[in-house]
Design a protein around this nucleic acid. Structure first.
Length: 269
DNA sequence: ATATCCACCTGGCGGC
DNA sequence: TGCCGCCAGGTGGATA
């Protein structure tokens, strides 16, 4: 998937086409993605989309009765197509609008989700999420305070949705490189200055990636089926066994929490 | 509470 | 060509 920039690219791509549009029909081709799709999502039918929001990597299709919650997992994407376009392999759900366009969720690995919340409740998946990385709430002071109880690698902590949402493996690697911080550092050992650098790096790398339309690795594509271009800017992710773009040193790699991590031993302390 | 590990899936790639 | 093992953008949940 899609990390936050890819999700945001997707949200921006679909929003203008479906806001204020009326939903005619929901068709579910695959009953279970990461979780079974609840039948409550049929409440979307006959409703008008009031807004298309995002919380972390969840896309929120809002109506006056409730909100459909979409997650793209590792391999999901959304497409807007004319109603009746032949289905592709791994098209799991479609939302048909009254103007005869439909929104389809395709997800080869089925790690994504299609869920529902009534307007009076908050889905448990959305509870306990940390701040959005691109808001002022996510600050150096906030991060420093959060790190005080954390004896794990800093990379794991910035990828923890309870600390800050939306930072996945690509951008965690990239932000730590940009901030000059070794991903293996014990989180609570970071100084305020390092927290400042890291928070700044996370915001910068995410903003740049959103501007570039996301990162395309294998199967991510935006709403028009076009790739993102941020992969051209990656400094460490995917560059295992290559040399550091800054100092020429051979990059190091290991696994942190089962996720491939790449860094420069000289530039990241 | 925190930390670790597993599970859920398909597809693409390199190696034999 | 084919089969095998390994890898991949996420993250909730079970376990210690």
């Amino acid at each position: 998937m899609p990390e936050l920039p890819e999700v945001e690219t997707t949200r921006c791509g679909i929003a203008p086409h479906i806001i204020h549009k009326s939903i005619q029909k929901i068709i579910i081709y695959t009953k279970k993605l990461r979780w079974p799709i609840p039948t409550t999502v049929y409440q979307l039918e006959k409703q008008v989309v009031s807004n298309v929001g995002r919380r972390g990597k969840y896309i929120l299709i809002e109506t006056s009765v409730g909100t459909a919650i979409l997650h793209l997992g590792m391999s999901g994407y959304l497409q807007l197509l004319p109603k009746g376009t032949p289905l592709k392999k791994h098209d799991h759900v479609e939302i048909i609008f009254s103007n005869d366009i439909c929104l389809r969720l395709n997800d080869a690995r089925r790690f994504g989700a299609f869920l529902w919340q009534n307007n009076s409740t908050i889905h448990s998946l959305l509870k306990g999420l940390g701040p959005e990385p691109l808001t002022a709430v996510f600050s150096a002071a906030y991060l420093l305070q959060k790190l005080q109880t954390k004896n794990r690698a800093i990379k794991l902590v910035i990828m923890d949705n309870a600390v800050v949402v939306g930072v996945g493996n690509i951008y965690a690697n990239e932000a730590l490189f940009l901030a000059g911080i070794n991903p293996n550092r014990i989180a609570k050992s970071l100084s305020l200055k390092e927290c400042k650098n890291l928070v700044h790096a996370i915001k910068k790398v995410l903003q740049k990636a959103i501007k570039a339309g996301g990162t395309t690795l294998k199967d991510f594509q935006n709403i028009e089926g076009k790739p993102g271009y941020f992969q051209q800017s990656l400094k460490v992710y995917g560059r295992i066994n290559s040399t550091c773009v800054k100092c020429g040193n051979c990059l190091s790699s290991n696994r942190i929490g089962q996720r491939l991590t790449v860094w420069c031993e000289i530039c990241q302390l």
